[in-house]
């Protein structure tokens, strides 16, 4: 047995349908908010963005940066692990032969399309050389065209600092043991 509650037609009482009391109730709410917000900004939730900023969560990663060797060169050896693991295909690396045989391979160009990036951090996990990090806590600045978000190696290195990790980075001289 299904019980049906009839709701058609008589939703309002006579007093309600005169709108008088209900309007006064509504007015009291809006006026209360108006006065509270005018006098104390008590309920105001809007932030005046450039002046006021909401703090980011602690685990927010932010933009990528390319780490540097002691001599300021890029640590990246263009192994393409990040480009391979990237689910958004936003990393483009052009590998080249380095003059220094101890480094051998390095990225001639390393660009990240920040529009495509999903900021998942998999590239950081994949990197064997501690060459890429996502810990700047910044987000991309607005741009007036798409190319502005295509960030080159130089810009990524500007955000980066030196890394002291050994694996995959500096190696001793040939034959020195």
């Amino acid at each position: 047995m299904i019980r049906v509650r009839e709701k058609y037609g008589d939703r309002m009482t006579a007093l309600e349908s005169s709108y008088l009391t209900e309007t006064l109730k509504g007015l009291s709410i809006t006026l209360r908010h108006f006065l509270e917000n005018t006098l104390t900004r008590k309920n105001t939730v809007t932030l005046n963005y450039p002046e006021e900023k909401k703090p980011y969560p602690e685990r927010f990663r932010g933009l990528h940066r390319l780490m540097k060797r002691d001599d300021g060169q890029v640590r990246c050896v263009a192994c393409m692990c990040c480009a391979t693991v990237c689910p958004a295909h936003c990393i483009k690396i052009e590998a080249g032969e380095h003059d220094d045989h101890r480094i051998e391979k390095f990225p001639i160009e390393f660009s990240i399309d920040w529009l495509r990036c999903v900021y998942c951090g998999l590239c950081v996990d994949a990197c064997p050389c501690d060459a890429i990090r996502m810990d700047t806590g910044e987000h991309p600045k607005p741009q007036i065209d798409r190319n502005g978000f295509l960030t080159t190696k130089i810009d990524l290195m500007k955000l980066g600092g030196p890394s002291v990790a050994v694996q995959g980075g500096v190696r001793p001289d040939n034959g020195e043991g």
Binding site: E104, P172, D173, N174, G175, G177
Partner: peptide, 9 residues
């Protein structure tokens, strides 16, 4: 112990 290194490239 360290690895033996030989010429590369």
């Amino acid at each position: 112990v360290g690895k033996v290194h030989k010429p590369k490239v």
